[in-house]
């Protein structure tokens, strides 16, 4: 465990908790894409099936359980508890356009043609694009609440920190995982435009709104 990895995990956890608290405290999920949250729940579920087969560490198990639990709690708040505040008219991204091609890709490009390995690969690929419905929603409405921007920033930062962790691990341990790296790069690149807006606008105290 190096500092980049730890900071990445903390950033990821922070993102998840920011979103949960935002919805819980405002009693509203306005501006949040339920579809991105369903995709993240699917990502965690398919990746962490190894909870049932392999014990890695107390840290690893705890974080996985927290990620899965929070992600299902978020989906539950959007589609049940605070359903009335869910902005479904603006959440129109078609999930099948991501899930089906990614399922096919994970069957074709993986480390090992075994069920758990294919599901792990699927989750890595899906995670890289799972934020698209949310970014699509922000671009459709032309703005995001400041707290939603903080969520997106923490979530983007997490994978950027993981990229540095992988560079570290390459030099420290002498190997790399091409599937994780390529997907992680794609994921981080998707956030770049948002990072720019976040730094130039949100950090200067302005609300994130896109030019018309």
């Amino acid at each position: 465990m190096n500092l980049f990895r730890l900071a990445g995990d903390v950033s990821h956890l922070l993102a998840i908790i920011i979103l949960l608290l935002k919805i819980w405290r405002t009693r509203s999920c306005a501006g949040i894409s339920g579809k991105s949250q369903i995709l993240f729940a699917l990502v965690f579920t398919t990746r962490y099936l190894d909870l049932l087969t392999t014990f890695i560490s107390f840290y690893n198990t705890t974080m996985k359980v927290i990620y899965i639990g929070c992600s299902y709690a978020t989906v539950w708040m959007i589609y049940a508890k605070f359903k009335a505040t869910y902005d479904s008219n603006h959440d129109t991204f078609r999930m099948e356009f991501l899930v089906i091609p990614i399922a096919a890709l994970s069957l074709l490009v993986n480390h090992d043609f075994a069920p758990l390995e294919i599901l792990w690969t699927f989750s890595i690929y899906l995670e890289s694009v799972a934020i698209l419905p949310q970014l699509f929603m922000v671009s459709k409405t032309g703005e995001a609440e400041t707290i939603t921007s903080h969520y997106l920033f923490a979530l983007g930062l997490y994978r950027a920190l993981y990229l540095m962790n992988w560079i570290w691990r390459f030099f420290a341990e002498g190997f790399f995982d091409l599937i994780a790296i390529v997907a992680g790069l794609v994921q981080t690149i998707l956030y770049c435009d948002f990072f720019y807006l976040y730094i130039t606008k949100v950090l200067k105290g302005k609300k994130l709104s896109l030019p018309a």
């Binding site: 990895r5 995990d9 990821h12 190894d50 392999t54 890695i56 560490s57 690893n60 974080m63 996985k64 990620y67 480390h111 090992d112 390995e117 792990w120 993981y162 962790n165 341990e173 190997f175 995982d177 994780a180």
Partner: peptide, 10 residues
């Protein structure tokens, strides 16, 4: 194996 090692990540 190498493949398994990176499964320590989240």
């Amino acid at each position: 194996s190498m493949v398994v090692m990176w499964k320590d990540e989240l």
